[in-house]
């Protein structure tokens, strides 16, 4: 579980996060949504410890990040897995080496043990024949799956994903969404996903945080988002005609 209490973050004169308070539940897919510039990426980077908030606190299973020493913070980060928007795979390494990297760096396992774990996680993300390929030789969807495999190889407690569907076709995007949800349940981890994708919101949004201008505007689940009267949320989520019709049908069905 991650508890966020009143965090503020500014860059020069720009006050990006203006007192966000929320809680991300363990074993659930928690989604952060909002328009571009609403502070989603800055919020995610604060959760990852890449940015330090000027005010407020972030607690990981009861440990306040700001009160930890730099060594303890690094140890805590080893319990986090991150899937970046552009996958952020290391260009000079093969797929297997990318996935093995965190284990090679932080564990004393033998080469064969690490190899077995790499085989297991690559199989888990449905990638069995790409071990010796370089990131530039595989598709965007495969890169995302490698990034997920690398993020879960150390059995993290927390999984963060920044726009995991960006640049993917709808079918692959659904596969990636389902994969993240399955892994969250399987490993009972706290997953936080930053997304613009409304399909993801409807499919896997067990808890949704809507940010607007650096504030938390709304919080709820994918079921509640249909019923909400919050104008900012409905304007954002139902900006397309298709979703407007879906919502209308849902309301009519209820009535």
């Amino acid at each position: 579980m991650i508890e966020v209490d009143n965090i503020h973050k500014s860059f020069g004169d720009s006050h990006v996060l203006k007192g966000v308070t929320t809680c991300f539940d363990q074993g659930k897919t928690n989604l952060i949504i909002g328009q571009s510039g609403s502070g989603k990426t800055v919020f995610l980077k604060c959760l990852l410890g890449l940015f330090t908030p000027e005010e407020g606190s972030i607690c990981y299973s009861g440990q306040k990040y700001g009160e930890l020493t730099s060594d303890q913070q690094r140890d805590l980060r080893q319990e986090m897995g991150m899937v970046f928007q552009g996958s952020a795979l290391f260009d000079s390494m093969t797929v297997a080496e990318n996935v093995m990297f965190p284990m090679d760096m932080f564990t004393k396992q033998s080469k064969s043990e690490m190899q077995d774990r790499v085989d297991f996680v690559l199989k888990r993300v449905n990638l069995t024949d790409a071990h010796y390929k370089f990131p530039s030789e595989i598709s965007g969807g495969m890169q995302k799956r490698v990034a997920i495999a690398r993020a879960i190889v150390m059995r993290p407690k927390y999984l963060f994903c920044d726009e995991p569907n960006s640049g993917l076709d709808p079918k692959t995007a659904i596969l990636i969404d389902n994969l993240i949800k399955e892994i969250t349940e399987e490993y009972n981890i706290t997953t936080v996903i930053n997304t613009h994708d409304m399909n993801s919101v409807m499919e896997i949004g067990e808890k949704i945080i809507f940010l607007k201008n650096g504030h938390k505007e709304w919080e709820g689940s994918n079921k509640e988002i249909f019923k909400t009267d919050n104008q900012a949320v409905t304007d954002f989520v139902y900006s397309s005609e298709l979703f407007k019709k879906v919502r209308q049908m849902y309301i009519e069905e209820r009535n």
Binding site: K45, R77, F84, A88, F90, M105, F160
Partner: peptide, 18 residues
């Protein structure tokens, strides 16, 4: 610089690597 742009440095930091 390319590693910075493509978030590979952020990936190292998140993993707890100096």
């Amino acid at each position: 610089g390319t590693m910075r742009v493509t978030e590979q440095i952020d990936a190292l930091e998140v993993m707890g690597v100096n």
